[in-house]
Computed example of a mutant assay.
Amino acid sequence: MLKQKLKGYHVILASGSPRRQQFFKDLDIDFSIQIKEIEEKYPKELKAAEITDFLADLKSKAFTNLQKEDLLITSDTIVWLEGVALGKPKDAKDAFNMLKRLSGKKHKVITSISIKNTFFQKIINDSTTVNFKKLSDDEIHYYIDNYKPFDKAGAYGIQEWIGFIGIESIEGSYFNVVGLPIHKLYDELMKL
């Protein structure tokens, strides 16, 4: 269905995330992967979805030579905890500190997606509330040592061991926490 809708487009997914790439395969979208390295910096006054909207747009601006048949998809995810954005951890110590902060608390996972071609750009976002149980230091160390969550915002993947044992509840889209609010992306692409 979506494949037919996107027939005239060359869909470019600008993401190295294996989870996002799998979502596109599962949606039966023909796409290519193109990644441009950018420095993910944003103005300090931005909050929550303003940050991910800004970064998804920033990633799209790195593609300066889009052709008229190109449809570029960029995205960004953060974990929003008590007014602070948690991105990807720098190392094991940073990952431990993030998970320690998330332990026993609710936080939001916010993802923004930019859909862009030479004629238009649309930025959408979604937010899911995640409730973690109190995690022991041993559980946190076990997870970091065995799963190395250094490519994940907030230092965890809901679809991994820590999600199985640590997440008590979520409000909103599970897939948003994995990395993309697929239902919203699908709806926007079907409008093209």
Rank of each mutant, 00 (worst) to 15 (best):
D30N: 15
L66T: 12
V79S: 10
N125Q: 12
M98T: 08
F24M: 15
F54H: 12
L81E: 08
L135H: 07
E171R: 15
E139V: 02
I162D: 00
F24E: 05
I124D: 03
F24G: 04
L6S: 02
Y143A: 03
E50W: 07
L55V: 13
D57S: 12
K122N: 09
T77N: 06
F24S: 07
D126A: 13
L81T: 07
K5P: 04
T74Y: 05
N176Y: 00
S114Q: 07
K25S: 14
K105G: 06
L102A: 06
D137Q: 14
I33N: 09
I158F: 03
P43L: 13
Q21I: 11
I29N: 01
V109S: 02
Y9P: 01
D57A: 09
L192M: 12
K133M: 05
D187N: 13
S136Y: 06
L102W: 04
I29A: 06
V11S: 02
D187L: 13
A153E: 08
P149D: 07
N131D: 14
I182H: 01
I33E: 03
K148R: 11
L2T: 05
K90I: 05
K122P: 02
Q121N: 13
I170G: 00
N65S: 14
K106Q: 15
D94M: 11
I38H: 03
K116Q: 11
I140C: 06
D91K: 08
L55K: 04
E168K: 15
G157H: 09
Y186F: 09
K47Y: 08
I144N: 08
I123N: 14
L2M: 10
Y9K: 15
N117A: 03
F31V: 09
K152M: 05
R101S: 15
E37A: 11
G157N: 10
E40N: 10
S127W: 02
N65V: 00
S17M: 12
T118H: 04
V130T: 09
K5M: 13
K133I: 01
V109A: 08
S60T: 04
H10Y: 14
K148D: 00
G163K: 08
Y186A: 02
T128L: 00
E37G: 02
H10F: 14
E40Y: 08
Y174H: 12
K93W: 00
I115E: 00
T52H: 02
F175L: 15
A62R: 12
G166F: 01
K93N: 13
K184S: 08
I170Q: 00
S75W: 01
L6R: 01
Q4G: 08
A49L: 12
N146W: 01
V11K: 01
L46H: 00
D30K: 12
K100S: 14
T64A: 14
K148H: 12
S173N: 14
G179T: 04
